[in-house]
Simulated scan of single mutants.
Amino acid sequence: MQNKWMIYGANGYSAELIAREAKKRGMTPVLAGRNKEKVNALAKQLGLEAVIVDLSEGQKLRESLKDMTLVLHCAGPFSATHKPMLEACIDTSTHYFDITGEIAVFEHAHSAEVSQRAKEAGIMVCPGVGFDVVPTDCLAAKLKQALPGATHLELAYKAAKHLSPGTAKTSVESMGGLCQVRENGSIKGIYSKTRQIDFGEGERLAMTIPWGDVSTAYHSTGIENVAVYVPVHPKTVAKMHKIQKWRWFYGLSFVQNMTKKQIEKKISGPDENLRQASPTYLWGQVWDEQGNKRTARFTTPNGYDLTITAPLAMVSAVINGEVSATGSITPSQLMGEDFVWSLPEVTPLEWVDA
C-alpha cells in the first residue's frame, strides 16, 4: 500500500496544529491548499512537500491525489468544500477523512449512493475524525452497547468558548436555520429545547444544538431519536429562540458574508495555554421503551487538541494497515467504540445511573 497522505487546507487553524504534530511524530504528510504563500511557508518550515491547488481545479486536484492513500480534508466550511474533495477522492481511489461537524455533510457522506460509489472505488469515506465527532460517537456506541434496546439517545458536551475561525464560520451558517434533532429516524428542525444535565459538578441548564451526532450516532448505533446539548445561561435560550425566529434574516447571503469577514479579522483560535486550561466534559444517556436508562460521562482534553490526536491516530492506523474498510463509515465503526479512550488524557468512562 502507498503511504503518502495529504492534509488539505493546511494553512487553517486545526490543520496547522495537525501538521506540526505529524512532523513531530516523524510523519510526512503532503501539505495542500489554495493559499500559496501560507501553505508554502508552513511546508518549508516543517520540511514537508507542498501542493498548491484550488478545489475548483478538478483535473489538477485529481492529479495531486493520484499517488495519495488518504486525504485529511481540513478546509471549511465543509458545506462548501466537501463535495469537490470527496468526488476527487472517489475518482482517484483515495480514502477520504475530514474534521467536519456539519450535519448536512455527514448525511451526504453517509448516503447510500456515496457509500456504494466508495465501495466500488475501494475506499473508505470517514467524515468527522476530530472532536467532531470522535468522543461523542464512541460514547454513543458505548451507551448502545450498555442498553442494546435503546430507542432514545441524548448527548452533551461542555467546552470552552474559544473558537477557531473555521468553527466560528460554521456556527454562523447554522444561524440561518432551526436546531436539528433526529426523531423516529428522520432529521427535523425544531426551536431549541432544554433539559438539566450533570457534567459532574451538579445539574446545569442545557440547550439542543445542531451537532454532527444527530447524523453520525444514528449510523453508528441505529438509535432513531437523537439530540445533542450544551450548557447555557437561561438568557441564551431566549436569545437563540429569537435568532431562530429571524433565521430568514441571518441566512441572507450579505449577512452571512459580513459576519464571516468580521470573524476573519477578529478570531484567530485559542493558543496552547488556553487549550491546556480548558478540557471538555462529555455526557450521554440512552433509554428504551420500558424506561430503562444508562447514563455516562467522561472528560477529554480541549476539543482542538483532540482534533490533533484523533485524526493522526486514525491516519496512522490506515496507513499501517491496522484497520481497513470500504464505503461510508463512522469513527467508532472504523476504530472501535473504545477508540477515544486510547487517546492521551481522556478519563475513563464513568457510569452515573441512579
Rank of each mutant, 00 (worst) to 15 (best):
K83N: 06
I197L: 12
L312I: 02
S56L: 11
V323W: 03
R294H: 15
R182M: 00
S186A: 13
L153Q: 09
Y281M: 06
N40W: 01
T100N: 08
P348S: 14
G321V: 00
I123Q: 04
V71D: 09
V286K: 10
F249Q: 02
D305E: 15
E345G: 01
Y304Q: 04
V318T: 05
A121F: 01
S14I: 11
G185T: 01
A10Y: 11
L17Y: 09
E264R: 04
D91M: 04
K158R: 13
I209Y: 00
K60D: 08
T170G: 12
E289C: 05
G269P: 04
D137W: 09
F199E: 10
T92C: 09
M314D: 02
A238K: 11
M240T: 03
A43Q: 12
S316Q: 14
V286H: 11
Q116G: 01
A354D: 12
V255H: 08
N11C: 11
L334C: 06
A296M: 09
T299H: 07
G189D: 01
E322H: 02
A88P: 08
H108D: 14
G128K: 14
Q45R: 10
E173A: 06
Y157D: 02
T236A: 13
G336N: 14
Y13H: 13
P127K: 15
A118W: 01
K266L: 07
T170R: 03
G130T: 08
V125P: 02
R117N: 07
A109Q: 12
N35Y: 11
Q276W: 03
K66F: 04
S328P: 02
K266P: 01
S342K: 15
P135N: 13
E57M: 08
D98C: 11
P311N: 13
E87Y: 09
D54F: 05
I267F: 08
A10H: 07
A19I: 01
A19N: 10
G12Q: 11
S316T: 03
N257F: 00
I209G: 00
H95T: 00
Q59C: 03
I197Y: 11
A121T: 00
S111Y: 02
W248N: 07
L155H: 02
V318Q: 10
I99P: 01
C126V: 06
P29V: 05
W246Y: 14
V346C: 09
T309N: 11
N302R: 07
S64L: 05
Q285V: 04
R20K: 14
S253C: 02
L282T: 05
K24T: 13
Q145K: 14
R25Q: 14
P234T: 00
V30P: 01
H219E: 06
G149Y: 03
V318I: 03
G336L: 12
M27G: 05
L48I: 05
Y157N: 07
T28H: 12
R275M: 15
G177R: 00
M207D: 10
P331A: 14
S328C: 02
H162P: 00
V323M: 02
A109H: 08
G128N: 10
T309E: 14
Y218N: 06
S278L: 05
Y229C: 02
